[in-house]
Design a protein around this nucleic acid. Structure first.
Length: 558
RNA sequence: GCGCCUGUAGCUCAGUAGGAUAGAGCAACGGCCUUCUAAGCCGUGUGCCAGGGGUUCGAAUCCCUUCAGGCGCGCCA
C-alpha cells in the first residue's frame, strides 16, 4: 500500500475538487461558489468504500440535475494517485468510489506512524477553549447532577484537546452572594443548637447532615465560645471553616473521579478586583441598563428577550447574573479565550439566552459562548425516584456514587447517553457490576488483547510484515472501524457530545470480540501472526486512547 | 399562559448542518469452550419514527399545529 489513510482521503477530496473545477471550465455547468467536498463511508458495502453527495449539493447553484452533474464530474475525474478503481453513480446522485482493495491497510500504517497520537486532528488548531464544568456550590457535597456534568465536561475537554484545541478546564467557585449568606445562617443555627441554644433553623437554610457535622467538629475544636460572639463575625468564621473543608473534599472527590482542573476561579475575586462593578458600569455606558424600583436592570429586551433582568438589587448587592457577566467577560476579553463552553443543568437553560445577550451588549459575540445543557439526572432506587436538592438533605453524593459503582462505571454510564437526553440512573442496576454494564465490555476487549500480547514470546523482528495477509471479513471490518477514529473525534467535537465516543468505544470492542472469536493471533504461520499482532496492537492503542478521553481505566487483566 | 428539552422495536437509546433498504444494546429463543480470558461469539424479528398538515427530486431530520412527559419563566443560583 502506497498511502496512509489520511493521505488517501486528502487525495480523493482533491481529485473531486479538481474534477468539479474541470467540469466547470469545460462549460458543462457554472457555479459562483462551491460547497465543501464531503466524503463519507456509505452504509452499504455495495456502494463502495467512499461516496460524495456533491452532485446533489450543486443543483441549486447550477440549475442542472444531480444525474447530469455526477456524469460530468466523473467524466473529468483523474484517478491518478487516488487508488480509485471504480466510480459509479447511484441512487439520487451519489458518486460512489471503490478503491483498490489494499487501501484499508493504510490505517495500520497511520497507527504505526502516529502511535499514541493516532486519532488526533487539527480541526481546532490554534484556537483556545475554556471548558467550565461542575462549578458546584461549595456549600455542600457534590450530587448526581455534578457527577453527570463532570463526566460530560471532562470528556468534552479531552475531545477538544484531541481535536486540536488548546483546552483549559475550569471550576467556578460560587463563594459569594446569597447562598453563602444562607450557608452562614445555617451553620450558625446548627452551632447554637449543638451548644444548647433553642434557635429556629432558617426556613430556606441548608438542611443537610453535612452542616451539622461541620459544626459538631468545629465545636470539638473550639468549644462553645462562639455562642457569645457577635453574629456577623461568628458567621464569617463558620463560613471560612466550612468552605475550606468543603473545597478540600470537592477536590479530593474529583481526584478520585479522575478530574483535574487547570483553573479554580473564585467568584469572590470578581468583586475584589472590581470587575463586577466595572462590567455594570460599562453596560451602563453602552446604554444597556436603567434604574427602576431602586434596582439596576439590564435591558435584555433590546436583544429580543422577553424580560429584563436585575443586575444590582435595591439593597445594592449585585446579582449572580451580574457576576456571571463579569466572569464571562473575564474569560473572553481579559483572558482572550476564543471559545467558552459551559456545562449546565437543564434548570439553568433560561440563563443561556440572557448571558449571550449580555455578551453582545458588552461588544463580544455571543457565538463565542456555547452551553451544553444536560437534562437532570433522575435517580431511582428500588423503583423510587429520589430528589436531589441540597437544601432537602437526603441526597446521593458523588462520593456515595463512586463508592457504590466505581469511577469507571459512573463515568462511562454518564456518557452513555447524549447530554440532552433525560437520564435515569438506576442505582440498583449500576451496583450489579454484571455484564449488564457496558464498561466491562470495552475494558474486557483491552484486557484480552493484553493477554494475547503477554503470551506471544516469539521474536518477530526479522519476520516480514505483510498487512495484506489480513483478508478475513472480521479483520477488514476491524480495520474499517479503526479508520474512522479521527472522524469520530472531529464529529464529537463539532456536536459537543462525548457520548459519541462512548458509543464508538463499544463499536470498536464489538468488532474486536468478533475478530477474536473468528481469528487466532497465535499461529504457526508467523507472517500471519505478525500481521495480526500489528492489528490487535492497533486496536489496543485506539481503546487506550478512548478510555483516556473518557477518564476510565484500561486494565491489562480482568 | 410563554420558552427550552424529550417522544423512534416489548424496554433503554442511536440516527436530526434533509439523502440510498431507519439501526444498536437489553429482554426472548437456539447454537459455540481439549486451541490466545465464555465479562465473549454466531444465528432467529420487531417499527403508523407520538398524531395531523406543509416545504421538495427526496423528511425520523426543516416549518406549522395538536397531544404526552420533564425543566424553566425570582431583586434565587
Amino acid at each position: 500500500m502506497k498511502y496512509t489513510l489520511i493521505e488517501i482521503k486528502k487525495n480523493l477530496i482533491k481529485a473531486i475538487e479538481e474534477s468539479v473545477g474541470k467540469a466547470i471550465a469545460s462549460g458543462a455547468f457554472s457555479a459562483d461558489s462551491l460547497p465543501e467536498i464531503i466524503i463519507e463511508v456509505p452504509r452499504e458495502k455495495a456502494f463502495g468504500d467512499f461516496s460524495t453527495n456533491i452532485a446533489m449539493q450543486l443543483p441549486k447553484l447550477t440549475k442542472k440535475s444531480p444525474k447530469f452533474l455526477a456524469e460530468e464530474i466523473i467524466k473529468n475525474f483523474d484517478m491518478t494517485g487516488t487508488l480509485v478503481e471504480k466510480i459509479e453513480i447511484a441512487g439520487p446522485g451519489f458518486i460512489n468510489f471503490t478503491l483498490e482493495s489494499d487501501w484499508i491497510y493504510g490505517v495500520l500504517k497511520d497507527i504505526d506512524r502516529l502511535k499514541e497520537s493516532y486519532g488526533r486532528t487539527e480541526a481546532g488548531k490554534g484556537k483556545t477553549v475554556n471548558v467550565e464544568f461542575i462549578s458546584a456550590n461549595p456549600t455542600g457535597p457534590m450530587h448526581m447532577g455534578n457527577a453527570r456534568g463532570g463526566a460530560i465536561g471532562d470528556g468534552m475537554a479531552s475531545i477538544l484537546d484531541w481535536a486540536g484545541y488548546e483546552v483549559t478546564r475550569e471550576f467556578y467557585i460560587n463563594d459569594a452572594g446569597n447562598q453563602i449568606a444562607k450557608f452562614g445562617q445555617s451553620l450558625e443555627a446548627r452551632y447554637l443548637q449543638i451548644n444548647g441554644m433553642d434557635v429556629q433553623f432558617p426556613e430556606d437554610g441548608y438542611k443537610g447532615e453535612d452542616i451539622t457535622v461541620h459544626m459538631e467538629e468545629f465545636t470539638k475544636i473550639h468549644g462553645d465560645k462562639y455562642v457569645e460572639m457577635e453574629s456577623s463575625a461568628r458567621k464569617q468564621a463558620f463560613i471560612e471553616y466550612a468552605l475550606e473543608k468543603n473545597l478540600t473534599k470537592i477536590k479530593e472527590d474529583l481526584g478520585g473521579y479522575g478530574i483535574t482542573y487547570d483553573v479554580w476561579f473564585n467568584e469572590s475575586s470578581l468583586y475584589e478586583s472590581g470587575e463586577v462593578i466595572k462590567t455594570i458600569d460599562e453596560l451602563t455606558q453602552r446604554g444597556h441598563t436603567y434604574e427602576k424600583d431602586g434596582a439596576i436592570w439590564f435591558k435584555a429586551t433590546d436583544f429580543g428577550l422577553e424580560k429584563d433582568d436585575v443586575l444590582i438589587r435595591n439593597n445594592e448587592i449585585p446579582t449572580y447574573f451580574a457576576a456571571d457577566i463579569a466572569y464571562h467577560v473575564n474569560k473572553l476579553r481579559t483572558r482572550k479565550f476564543d471559545w467558552s463552553i459551559n456545562v449546565w443543568g437543564a434548570d439553568h437553560h433560561g440563563h443561556v439566552a440572557r448571558m449571550k445577550a449580555a455578551l453582545e451588549a458588552m461588544g463580544l459575540s455571543g457565538d463565542r459562548l456555547d452551553v451544553i445543557i444536560m437534562q437532570l439526572v433522575r435517580l431511582t432506587r428500588k423503583g423510587e425516584t429520589a430528589r436531589m436538592s441540597k437544601r432537602q438533605g437526603n441526597m446521593v453524593t458523588l462520593s456515595d456514587l463512586i463508592e457504590e459503582v466505581g469511577t469507571d462505571a459512573a463515568r462511562f454510564f454518564f456518557n452513555l447517553r447524549s447530554p440532552e437526553s433525560h437520564f435515569d440512573f438506576d442505582l440498583d442496576l449500576a451496583v450489579e457490576e454484571s455484564n449488564e454494564n457496558p464498561v466491562f465490555y470495552v475494558q474486557y476487549a483491552h484486557a484480552r488483547i493484553s493477554s494475547i500480547l503477554r503470551q506471544i514470546e516469539d521474536d518477530l523482528t526479522k519476520v516480514k510484515l505483510d498487512y495484506t495477509l489480513l483478508k478475513a471479513k472480521e479483520e477488514r471490518e476491524l480495520m474499517e472501524i479503526l479508520a474512522i477514529f479521527p472522524d469520530e473525534i472531529t464529529g464529537a467535537a463539532a456536536k459537543m457530545d462525548p457520548s459519541r465516543i462512548t458509543r464508538y468505544a463499544m463499536d470498536v470492542a464489538a468488532n474486536f470480540h468478533s475478530f477474536y472469536n473468528a481469528c487466532r493471533v497465535k499461529s504457526e504461520d508467523i507472517e500471519l501472526m505478525k500481521a495480526r499482532l500489528e492489528l490487535v496492537k492497533g486496536v489496543k492503542l485506539v481503546l487506550k486512547n478512548i478510555t483516556e478521553i473518557l477518564g476510565i481505566n484500561a486494565p491489562e487483566r480482568m
